[in-house]
């Protein structure tokens, strides 16, 4: 019994049908606990006041935004090598989730930046990188939407994911060299998350776990949708052939 058993769409549907309710409930509970904890039961930061509470949405969303793309890349590679449909469809399913998470990170970052930096938007390398990541998500989603044949679409988007990953990383470093002068990241960086006091650290970790669970739940749900959509397409094609 290997993990590839679940690459079979029928098996995947059967298993996910059983797991999904529990997964959804668990992620809802953890998200609720984390956000209530973060919003109601954390003190203000001595420097940032109450805006520090934004960290419990901003940082987890940003982490998911990046890792969703990594997951899509891995799923695309698995599709190209092993031709498991579930893998290709999981990559497709993750893209909108990653795009929305990127948007959340950008929006909450802007709202946090306004009182802290005095501006909604600075062309800081990290902000810039997320905006670029968002553009990559848009292109990937648009390519999926534009191609009729699902296998062709899966192949082409996989190639795009690979090339896109290389150039997304390049863009990240280009942005660093382009504007290293404005590197005021101290108020919101990943490194800082490791230095924040325990009162912020534990709810933050809880929020990250919650967002990961939410991501997994949504990807499983959306993969099921895509598997059904694919089967629907096949049935309709068979019908019209008669």
């Amino acid at each position: 019994m290997s993990i590839w058993e679940y690459a079979n769409p029928v098996r995947f549907m059967r298993l996910s049908d059983r797991v999904l309710p529990w997964l959804a409930a668990l992620s809802a509970i953890v998200m609720l606990v984390a956000l209530v904890w973060g919003f109601f039961f954390t003190p203000d930061d001595y420097r940032q006041g109450s805006t520090v509470k934004i960290i419990f949405i901003h940082v987890p969303a940003a982490m998911i935004a990046i890792n969703a793309w990594v997951m899509m890349l891995v799923a695309s590679l698995i599709w190209l090598v092993r031709r498991h449909h579930v893998s290709a469809l999981a990559a497709k399913a993750a893209a909108p989730v990653g795009a929305v998470m990127t948007m959340i990170a950008l929006v909450t970052g802007a709202v946090w930046g306004e009182p802290m930096w005095g501006t909604w938007w600075a062309w800081d390398p990290r902000l810039t990188s997320f905006l670029i990541l968002f553009l990559f998500y848009l292109g990937y989603i648009a390519l999926w939407a534009a191609i009729d044949n699902p296998d062709t679409a899966a192949d082409l988007t996989s190639v795009l994911a690979i090339v896109g990953s290389v150039f997304a990383v390049l863009s990240r470093y280009a942005a660093l060299i382009w504007n290293q002068g404005l590197h005021q990241g101290a108020s919101l960086s990943m490194d800082r998350a490791e230095h924040v006091a325990d009162v912020f650290y534990y709810p933050l970790v809880t929020a990250i776990v919650g967002f990961i669970l939410l991501f997994v739940t949504l990807v499983v749900l959306r993969t099921r949708t895509e598997i059904r959509a694919r089967r629907l397409r096949a049935l309709l094609a068979r019908e019209s052939r008669e």
């Binding site: 956000l35 934004i54 949405i57 909108p96 929305v100 929006v107 009182p115 939410l214 959306r222 949708t225």
Partner: peptide, 27 residues
């Protein structure tokens, strides 16, 4: 900072809710 914190949480939760609702609806 009440306005900023509330709008950040509001925007974040609205986007997450929209994503969840759209996913369920399409499924």
């Amino acid at each position: 900072y009440a306005l900023w914190v509330l709008s950040a949480y509001g925007a974040g939760l609205v986007l997450i809710a929209a994503l969840v609702i759209q996913s369920i609806w399409r499924d």
